[in-house]
Design a protein around this nucleic acid. Structure first.
Lengths: 341, 341
DNA sequence: TTGAAAGCGCTAACAA
DNA sequence: TTGTTAGCGCTTTCAA
């Protein structure tokens, strides 16, 4: 029923190969005239290439997988951030004629299995921890890891410039005149995303003459609820603190809510700065000042890099860090406002 | 480099077909003993089937597409709801040995193109409007439309029992003693998701003796911001109203915020009930009473239905509506509380 | 610039 | 229970 290359070939009175060459844009191997005629016929007949056949013959599938870890017998649980990354990469790949296979990964063998089974041209790893990426042994196809600081040489890293983001947050707070600071984020080891944000924040503080030992650190998950709990007890636990850097907006917004419940005013009593610039950040009261990143661009960049490797393939390129910027809203003010109280 | 069926066959001293049959679980065609041996060898050699080859030979790909509409040159923009649906269906399909291809659809031809090109076994349509689904002409593969009330005979509908949800909301409010009600939701024509919720709501109101003409209706988008705007002006525009049914939690939460800004207390002055039970609904103050649905189950159900059609194929099954339930939190109370004021 | 031959790895249909 | 034959629709390689 479906139209094949051979159908077009006989209709056009040329060989199957000529049609194949036209379809693959190898214009140098076909005369302008026949190319034109073949194209016209293909269009008229409604030709759609059979991708499995193409994959089999060429051992190249035009499929890039989006892989995210998933607990055994669990559903894919993508964060809003990941969803946006996928949106960005899907668009790029679609426009380049590639396809996205979405797959939850229960164990490392799933990765190699998917790659070999589908003759995947590449894969993009989302939400994997650096330690997991370190362990990946796969080779033969380009692998891009999003938000990774892993040094796995087989893996291309695409991430946000987290260090600069931390630095922006620190600068924003110290320039407003704060010196009693609190850093709130998930526990981390080494120089992953959070480590980078901390380093950047720290260096901004030091640059403005703050003694690092003065900086309070609270380890907390980044959920709204954890932030809320932290906000409620903040004044009690840290009476001197006048400004908080929360390493995620979800956390920051929770803190805002908790502080509000505790009767602490933002920004008059305490300033809060977040990271991510999620949709909600513009909507809460007061609006959350935060470090913003272009998440879709991160997805597109990841896609661009896999394709570059697929098509040119000159060995793992260096990590890429995307720019961040400061979004100023109402949650940060000078601490003097509070001393007036 | 990769292991093929023939490698296993020669290693085991049997024919290629025997191995193929073992791999496809056709246990009736192979003796227990050889099956065992073949499996052992396949495992030892690390055999991974070549899926494109399998697809080509069987003209069946084991791929189900997740399709969502996308503006030309735009990125996939999935709502949290859709993301959860995809999580549910991906898990189901993965466990059944199928794969998910994620694809943004710019025009209807993209759907047929994808189906023919990949020999897709089926597709699940997400975020399409009923009017778009009505127009779909595709045939040959099962198509499941999520949250659709389209009567397109080629399409299997999986949705929430929206009518019952509306009814639950209406009952909740009238049983609390409210009679001055407001229905807030997006404009709708016909009996789509919103039409159903309205019908259910209306019938609950009528059942408790409320004159339909008393019910105020506000047409509004369902974003937080639109809700906020509505909340701010609610008291002024509708001074008599004591209870609001917002057809989405995002809207309801915005209304809560707007009411709060306007100094209207919830639930003392006005009760609010939502729909969806999104994560945020448990976290706001007061907690939002709402109609809940199991979204992952909806995805899994959609997956189950496509596979049922793929494997049994006995013609488009009737629409399926998943159950809803009422989640009672603090945002609904009896109106008498307010009359005491 | 065009074409013929061979085969990618697998499965369906039939034969033994 | 096992094996043989014949493709699936395409690309690669090589020859014209």
């Amino acid at each position: 029923m479906p139209v094949r290359l051979s159908d077009i070939a006989s209709e056009a009175g040329v060989s199957l190969m000529t049609v194949s060459n036209v379809m693959n844009g190898k214009r140098s191997r076909v005369s302008e005239a026949t190319a034109h005629r073949v194209l016209e016929i293909a269009d008229r007949l409604g030709y759609v290439p059979n991708l499995p056949a193409r994959s089999l013959a060429a051992s190249k599938s035009h499929i890039i997988a989006a892989l995210t870890p998933v607990g055994e017998d669990h559903s894919l649980l993508m964060s809003p951030h990941t969803v946006e990354v996928i949106g960005g990469l899907e668009k790029h790949l679609r426009h380049e004629g590639y396809h996205v296979l979405l797959r939850g990964i229960e164990k490392e063998a799933d990765i190699t299995g998917a790659i070999k089974g589908w003759a995947l041209d590449g894969a993009i790893l989302l939400e994997f921890a650096d330690s997991q990426i370190d362990r990946i042994q796969v080779s033969g196809v380009p692998l891009v890891a999003i938000d990774s600081y892993s040094e796995n040489p087989r893996t291309i890293s695409v991430r946000t410039d987290d260090r600069r983001g931390g630095w922006l947050a620190g600068t924003c707070l110290t320039e407003a005149g704060h010196s009693q600071l609190l850093f709130a984020g998930p526990p981390f080891e080494g120089m992953g995303v959070m480590g980078q944000r901390w380093e950047g924040f720290l260096s901004a503080c030091i640059a403005s003459g703050i003694d690092p030992s003065q900086i309070a650190v609270v380890e907390t998950l980044i959920s709204y609820e954890d932030g809320q709990a932290l906000g409620r007890r903040l004044r009690k636990d840290h009476p001197d603190v006048t400004a908080v850097f929360a390493t995620a907006d979800s956390l920051a917004i929770g803190i805002l809510a908790g502080l509000n419940e505790a009767g602490v005013r933002v920004p008059e009593d305490i300033s809060v700065i977040g990271f991510d610039n999620i949709e909600m950040s513009a909507l809460v009261t007061p609006g959350l000042t935060t470090v913003a990143q272009d998440i879709q661009a991160k997805g597109a960049e990841a896609a661009r890099l896999v394709l570059q490797e697929v098509e040119k393939g000159q060995g793992t390129p260096p990590p890429i860090s995307l720019e961040v910027s400061l979004v100023t809203r109402a949650s940060v003010a000078s601490p003097r406002t509070s001393q007036r109280t």
